[in-house]
Write a protein that binds this DNA or RNA. Sequence first.
DNA 1: GGTTTTATTGAAACTAATTGCAGTTACAAT
DNA 2: ATTGTAACTGCAATTAGTTTCAATAAAACC
Lengths: 139, 139
Amino acid sequence: MNHSGDISSKLRRRGYRLTPQRMMILEAVEAADGHISADEIYARVCDRYPHLNISTVYRTFELLKELGLVTETDMGDGRVRYHSIRKGHHHHLVCQNCGCIIDLDEAVLLPLKDALFRDYGFDADLKHLAIFGRCSKCR
Amino acid sequence: MNHSGDISSKLRRRGYRLTPQRMMILEAVEAADGHISADEIYARVCDRYPHLNISTVYRTFELLKELGLVTETDMGDGRVRYHSIRKGHHHHLVCQNCGCIIDLDEAVLLPLKDALFRDYGFDADLKHLAIFGRCSKCR
DNA sequence: GGTTTTATTGAAACTAATTGCAGTTACAAT
DNA sequence: ATTGTAACTGCAATTAGTTTCAATAAAACC
């Protein structure tokens, strides 16, 4: 269940370091079931390791994103949320009226991804996406 | 060329008021060629009408968005940009490596919009969208 | 025109996120 | 084991955007 080994080497191979802060933040993201905000991670890690700065949390997420270990989604509620990539790709339909969130299968977006690649040579990063609109109830 | 008449009635019909601030902000958005940030609008309007508050700019954009007069796009550079709807719909491919922006025809997204409606009953608001990824040069 | 109602504004406080910098520390090389 | 150095951290300041609230002013009604 513990992946700190391969993450550690993944970091080191690129010249990054595995610090206690990073370990604890990564652990907390893996432990979280679902999408979690920087604030929430900060609060959870602070319980056990009080001397942590919120900016370190943001910078760690930046790094984890770069390494492809987490994805970032803006659900439109004013705070960005993060999600471990090991828990699978998925997307969201966010209703602008009632705020409900519908999980979306990746397959629906594949035709778009293909079209962008074919027509524009653009490799779209659709790992995590939120599409806004109106759900069936609110239409 | 002047639309303040029909905008004025559009506002009043919904119980909103046409204030000098709103007129000047809307004028500035129409005059801008392309996407413009709240800051830039604020600076431009302030030249002629110095007693304007930045929060009024944000609130006005919120309102104009609601009325469907402008759209909002996050190009990923840390500030949201606005665009008059009268200058046409379009979308963007934003390269996460070199930062270049490719204009995208609306038609490419129609199949996705249709699929979301058909499969999920979700009416996606794809008026303005930025898709991130890697352009042909940076792949 | 004058009065009233209530949407709107400006100012200031606040939140989420980012940045610059000086001091610290992981870890590779000795 | 010690050292050198570049990566990293905490702190404080900054930025984009939002919210609160008292004062103001559109526009509807007389």
